[in-house]
């Protein structure tokens, strides 16, 4: 960006490899925690919907509003309460995963064919056995599709948390912007995209492994 400066300065990259590795790990951790907590919460919400179907409207409405609020605004809301902390970042990241994952878990469970459910109950499955042995495995492709969307989205969003002092790879992007230095900017952007693609591919592979019947 500075005239005369090459777009990518490889010497900077090589001298910052340790830093890059650390930020990459940080990024994965931030994303992993958000997806993990988000998934458990979504499972609970989906269970609520399974027991009381009228809750589906209110739950999608609330998670929908959370999802619609831009990330920067959500972080700004939280800063007066939880400060510039990892907690602020995680609350924001988790709240964005809820809509997608809850909706997909509910949709996946509802898509279990009625005849399969009926014959399972007719053969004497208890409610819990029905859920964990029949409904969840069958809903797995749809659930995993939701996890994939949530994960790639969260990996992108995690960069924004650089603005509140977290951010993993977002750190490099912000550094690049603030210092008018294209190398860290490109490193951050490229690694963030690469990470999203890699994790998404891993999830596709995992889905193929655990759903042999769908092949």
């Amino acid at each position: 960006m500075t005239p005369g400066e090459p777009l990518v300065r490889w010497d900077w990259i090589f001298s910052h490899l340790g830093d890059v590795g650390q930020r990459l790990g940080e990024h994965l951790l931030l994303t992993g925690i958000a997806i993990g907590i988000g998934f458990v919460l979504s499972l609970c919400l989906a269970q609520l919907v399974r027991s009381w179907s009228w809750l589906y409207g209110p739950i999608t409405w609330i998670t929908g509003v959370l999802y619609t609020i831009p990330s920067l605004a959500l972080f700004a809301f939280l800063i007066p309460i939880t400060g510039l902390s990892r907690l602020t970042a995680e609350i924001g990241l988790v709240s964005y995963t809820l809509l997608i994952m809850t909706r997909n878990i509910v949709a996946g469970l509802q898509a279990v064919p009625a005849d399969v459910r009926e014959s399972a109950i007719g053969m004497g499955y208890t409610d819990r056995q029905l859920l964990w042995r029949i409904e969840m495995p069958l809903a797995l492709p749809v659930i995993l599709a939701g996890v994939r969307v949530a994960t790639t989205t969260t990996i992108g969003l995690t960069t924004v948390t650089a603005l509140i002092g977290q951010g993993g790879l977002g750190y490099f992007i912000l550094e690049g912007i603030l210092r008018f230095f294209s190398t860290p900017l490109l490193v951050g952007a490229f690694l963030s995209i690469a990470l999203a693609v890699a994790v998404d591919s891993a999830l596709v592979l995992y889905q193929r492994l655990v759903t042999p019947w769908a092949r």
Partner: peptide, 14 residues
């Protein structure tokens, strides 16, 4: 979906 918006903004800069 994999494109982070912050990165998009940043990439648009150069």
């Amino acid at each position: 979906r994999a494109l982070p918006s912050l990165a998009l903004i940043a990439l648009a800069l150069p």
